[in-house]
Amino acid sequence: MRKSRVWILIFIVALSAAFALPQPLFVTAAAQTPHDLHIEQTDGLRFVLWSGEEGGNWFSVKLNGDFIMENGFIWSADGEFSLEITDYVQTPGNYVIEIAQTDGENPITPFASHTFSVSGVLEAPQAVAVDNLSLSWDAVANAAGYTVVINGIAVASATDCVFDLSRHIVISAQYCVAVFAVPQNPDLFQNSPQAVIWYEYNAPLAAPKNASIVYFLNTYLSWSPVLCADGYFYGKASDLPLSITAANLEAAFYYTENNFADISSLSTGGAEIALIARRGNILSPVTVIEAR
């Protein structure tokens, strides 16, 4: 073997040994554990920022114990580093971020850690509906309960997704009914936006009372007046439309604004007579009178 080749071989072996040696052989006296870790939020983006060794541009970063960057290069001219973590902290919650300087392959400092919280806004309740004075909505994740607001007045807190409006809605009117979710952990979540529904309440009409059919010179059907009724439909119960609406009753029944009717021409033949009070399209329950 020529002498020059021997020297080349010795150089290669020495170089290999040098790489295999422990890191401290490469750590300069200025290597610093990352410090002053903090989170900043700019234009909807979240960054973790820290201070470190000037020129020490290789880092490993863990979030909640999982590497989000391993031996990554972050350039900085003045030893102030930052890393955008927006995509990793979309979910509101508590997070621990850990950062260590590396030599491009292995950490050369201990991991420095920082704990921070990410808060959010609860989602607005969906599928808000009112049925027969029962307000209902879909449950919202992370909600501890809900607040019901009627016409700007917060009337109640609910833990279920249903609320009985009859305790508060009595007067016939149009109502602005809103519901918003309240978080379990106010540090992590804010109240949801209000889900609003407009609801027109028409107080029901009472069924006609004291109704009877009598003969006195003629055959009369009479009853006690129903408060707030515009008029009354009456006819044979067997002629009641399947769908009892004001429009259907107008077609199938007789109508009067009095609280009595001469039914001499209505051949009852022992049939049952149905009587319904109306106010606009609002109908009372049906009162059935047996024709004697």
Binding site: N210, V214, Y215, S222, S224, F260
Partner: peptide, 17 residues
Amino acid sequence: KNIGFLQNYDGKFLIFE
């Protein structure tokens, strides 16, 4: 028989036969 009420403009009546 046919006991009932008649309520009209003239008043309230109990009617029976």
